[in-house]
Structures are given as structure tokens and as C-alpha cells.
Design a protein around this nucleic acid. Sequence first.
DNA 1: CTTACTGCAAATATTTTGCATTTGG
DNA 2: CCAAATGCAAAATATTTGCAGTAAG
Lengths: 142, 142
Amino acid sequence: MSSSGTGTELAASLRAVGLRVTATRERVYAAIARSPHATPEALTELVNLDEPAIPPSSVYRALDALEEAGLVTHTHLDHHAPTYHRADHAQHLHLVCRECGAVTESPASVADDLVATLADRHGFAADVTHMAIHGRCAACRP
Amino acid sequence: MSSSGTGTELAASLRAVGLRVTATRERVYAAIARSPHATPEALTELVNLDEPAIPPSSVYRALDALEEAGLVTHTHLDHHAPTYHRADHAQHLHLVCRECGAVTESPASVADDLVATLADRHGFAADVTHMAIHGRCAACRP
DNA sequence: CTTACTGCAAATATTTTGCATTTGG
DNA sequence: CCAAATGCAAAATATTTGCAGTAAG
């Protein structure tokens, strides 16, 4: 049980949807695990601390593959910035400070009431796992 | 009180922050009022049903100006799509269907509990007005 | 008048795609 | 082996910017 069996899960999840296990996908997945809330650009940089370098286009394709395998999800925390995180670490909401940009996490359960209300009133099945809430964090409040 | 004095409010809000009142800004603002949740691209198209045509770059600049004047706000409902709405019509959340893309609105008050909880547990002042919730709408559920 | 705004076109930034080559299963 | 994935470079998309002319105040 060296490193929580993550490598094995990655292989299994990819194969389960008919995708291959490649070095590129392993490296991108490892980078996401190391750096939650990272953008594709940031992940490219992070991944390329090691060689051989992986071009941005391949990072994008790896992200698609990982997402298709259900290993990662992405959220749009701000403008041009999809951020990726591991699916098994996704049960939280993102509190994005409009002031300093800090991203805090909160357990998804705080939104249970809201989810129930939306299901009730609109028949809408909300996935709060993908939710970003903007506002002002404790540190940036007067 | 013909049309709720909107034209006057626009002029006043722009001037209040030292911006000028121009035909471009009036037309873009009118388009937003007519079509909530529209992207810059959609607004450009809508605005250009009348002539003279306004180029995209000017629409972007008008949106910036209107936002700076506090007349409109924008939200990111999905990938490359900031959507604009009038600030005085913004007290709602956006329920975005991942299936069909439909955007439903729900009064912001349904999130009151959540807002209170986040303030309580994280000292985070959430602005649910800018919140998009992804999921599946009633029509797209089995 | 004076400075901000606009239109146009070119520049940026970001993500996607075609295709020959490599590699996983 | 065969199909899928990669690397590279070029294309597509979205947004920003420089500048000279126009118009708001």
C-alpha cells in the first residue's frame, strides 16, 4: 500500500472506458494530485519540470481522457480558467475570494439543504461538486 | 414613468463614475435588458439587428463600462461564456443544465441558509448573485 | 475646446485539430 | 500487429489593444 494505490486506480479507470494507460496521462494525473485547482497552463508547467516535455496540446488531451475516465473533474473558478481536481477529492465547494483570489474549500454537505430545495422547487438535480461561490474571504473582510 | 426610467438611470450611473453616455453603451445595455444571460457574442449579434453595426471590440468595451458603472454584472455559466445581466435584475441563481444547456433562474433566497452557514463556518461573505449551479434540469431527467 | 470613445485591423491568449510517427495492449 | 495516443505545427476561437478619427460634455 505504498502510495494509496493511486496508480492502480488510474489504470483501472482508464481501461474501464477503453482508454490506454500512458506516461503522459500518468504524469498529468500526478500533477493534478499534487496541485489542486490548477489550470491547464499551470499543469503543463508543472508537468514539464520533468522531461521529456509534454506540449500543451497533449496536456489538454490527457485532461479530456482523465475526465472521461471519471478520474478528474473541472470547475470554472474565474474567467479563462478551468481548474482541475481529482474526482475522489471533489466533494467540496469552492469559495473563491474576489479580492485576493484565494480558493477555500467547504464540504459539499453545507449545501445539502439547497440541493434539496432545488430538487423540490425546480426538479433540478444540482451537482454542487462543480460549484464555485464567489465572495469575500475572512482575510479580506474589514 | 413610461419605461421605469431606465434610460435616466443609465445616464446617471455612467456619469457617477465619470463615464460618458454614448449610443453604443445605450444600445448594449438595452440588448442586455432584452436578453438576460447573453454572451458578448450574442449581444453583438442582437445589437447589430439595428444599424450602424457595432464591432465586437466596442461591445466588449461597452460591457466593461456598464459593469464599472454598476449597471450590469457577469457570470460564467459554462466554458467560454461570460453572460451578462442587469444589476437590478441579478437577485437570482442560475441553474445550468449540463444536458441541454438551459438556464433556469431561482430566487437567491433559496441559498440564504447556505450563505449563513458559510459566513458562520468560514467567515466567507458569499455573493450568490454570481452563482451558477450545474446539474440536470427537470426536462432532462429520466 | 479637450478628452474620452469608437471603429478598424492587427495582436494576444487559449484551446482545438490534422497528420505522420510512436506505442500500448 | 492494429488501433489509439503523441508531438508538432497550423487553425480556430475569444478577447484585447494601438491608433487615428469622431463626438460627449
